[in-house]
Write a protein that binds this DNA or RNA. Structure first.
Length: 416
RNA sequence: GCGGGUGUAGCUCAGUGGUAGAGCAUCAGAUUGUGGCUCUGAGGGUCGUGGGUUCAAUCCCCAUCAUUCGCCCCA
């Protein structure tokens, strides 16, 4: 039997899980403060929820999706991103009744068949938000603000940089795309191999090419901002003014183009300088176009997604471990007494540890130390007789006798 | 999908064509009811996997898998 975990997957051991859990809980709590309600959608959907038109130009959909036929012969796909499923659920559940609507998700698994790297897994997890029915720029501003709020709540708002751009309306983009293709076509031979391929498939992506030749050509290329309608320009100006008013730092980046093709108007990315090539921790934008792509009447949408593994990587050095009260039990009946008392501490929310297999006094003490216990409670035969247990402060080494009830109230107040 | 690096003890890594070592960690003892420090000792390895060259391969060659860095893409 092959005992290796599948390529691009990992097992989150307790230390990592603790941070992931913290990220998910914090995210939901932050989102709730902005009026978001949690939604849970299936891990798999009919394939066309994600691949809306044949020959989809985005790599995520055309090359990286896990697709399978179910036993009934239907084409299904594992979720490669969070937004499309939520939009589908919006229709399936008739949530039009509830507009405007704010939905969030936390810790949902997402699958992409990619070449694994640090911060890039074939199964990763996202937290994110989607809001529907807000046409104005304030929704774009608030969405970005929530991104900041999340990172701040996680204590990782250092070393970040934010870029924003506007892709304009669908019409703006069609015009710009034509201009871009017309500009690059005479220079076709000079383009990098990647960009040659991109020219007709997804020419906007040439904008963020890293090839030096491509970048040289880009100097004289038509600019997206010159192709925005007055309306689009006004929307984007309001977004930037809103970010300024909230004191949120950002950089305008005219070459920022998102990989998913449903974005319109505002797009943004938050990067961390603590990660390597996979530096994006949050990215999103407005996707008024998506809802129409699903063949329904159009509804405004804005949102973002964030990879929990990347957030976790930034939080690596943070120690999330709680400090227990460790019980040292020696002698007849003491372990059971320790279990009984430990449960009382747990009932008031403390973390209590009892060495279940006993062991020498010394080894139990060592165990308490290894767990980084804040206090240890010593229950030996003398203590059983007197009914007063020894409470030892593991930092100062101080120790005194307390009756069980006093011990509980003392520890409840101590709050180490 | 493309190009490079790396796979040796639980972890971080030395090392040699004659079947292996350190530090940390673990366990035990010094110290029969008091942890961290120190000292002593012990356990733990098909040297990623499969093939080839060789009297002999952990080392050289090929393949493969995994991982990592960059590209691509993206959270």
């Amino acid at each position: 039997m092959n005992l290796q975990n599948p390529r691009g997957t990992y097992d989150a051991l307790p230390e990592m899980s603790e941070r992931l859990r913290f990220i998910e809980n914090t995210a939901v709590e932050v989102f709730r403060r902005y009026g978001y309600g949690e939604i849970r959608t299936p891990v798999f959907e009919h394939m066309d929820v994600f691949a809306r038109n044949v020959g989809d130009s985005t790599d995520i959909v055309s090359k990286e999706m896990y697709v399978f036929d179910d036993r009934g012969g239907d084409k299904m796909a594992l979720r490669p991103e969070g937004t499309a499923g939520v939009v589908r659920a919006y229709y399936s559940n008739g949530l039009k009744q509830n507009l405007p609507l704010k939905l969030c998700y936390a810790g949902i698994p997402v699958f992409r068949y990619e070449r694994p790297q640090k911060g890039r897994y074939r199964q990763h997890h996202q937290v994110g938000i989607e809001c529907f029915g807000f046409n104005g720029p304030a929704a774009d501003v608030e969405t970005i603000a929530i991104g900041f709020a999340l990172l701040k709540a996680l204590g990782i708002d250092d070393g970040l940089y934010v870029t924003v751009n506007s892709l304009g309306s669908k019409e703006d983009r069609v015009k710009y795309r034509e201009a871009l293709v017309a500009y690059f076509e005479p220079h076709f031979e000079k383009l990098s191999a990647d960009s040659k391929e991109r020219l007709h498939k997804n020419p906007l992506r040439i904008l963020d090419s890293k090839s030096e030749n491509d970048r040289a050509l880009l100097g004289d290329a038509p600019k997206l901002e010159d192709y925005l309608s007055e309306e689009s320009k006004a929307h984007f100006a309001d977004v930037k003014a809103g970010l300024d008013a909230l004191g949120l730092p950002y950089k305008f980046d005219g070459t920022l183009v998102r990989g998913l093709d449903y974005y319109t108007h505002t797009v943004f990315e938050i990067h961390s300088d603590k990660l390597g090539a996979q530096s994006q921790v949050i990215s999103g934008g407005r996707y008024d176009g998506l809802v129409e792509q699903m063949g329904k009447d159009s509804v405004a949408g804005v949102g973002f997604g964030s990879g929990t593994e990347r957030l976790e990587a930034i939080m690596r050095e943070m120690d999330m471990k709680r400090r227990p009260v460790s019980f040292i039990a020696m002698g007849e009946g003491t372990t059971v007494e320790a279990l009984r008392l430990a449960d009382k501490l747990r009932a008031v929310g403390l973390y209590a540890d009892v060495s279940l297999d006993g062991g020498s006094f010394k080894s139990q003490m060592k165990r308490a130390n290894k767990l980084n216990a804040c206090y240890s409670v010593i229950i030996g035969e003398d203590e059983m007789k007197s009914g007063e247990y020894q409470l030892k402060d593991m930092d100062s080494g101080e120790q005194h006798s307390l009756r069980p009830d006093d011990l509980i109230s003392y520890l409840t107040r101590a709050g180490k």
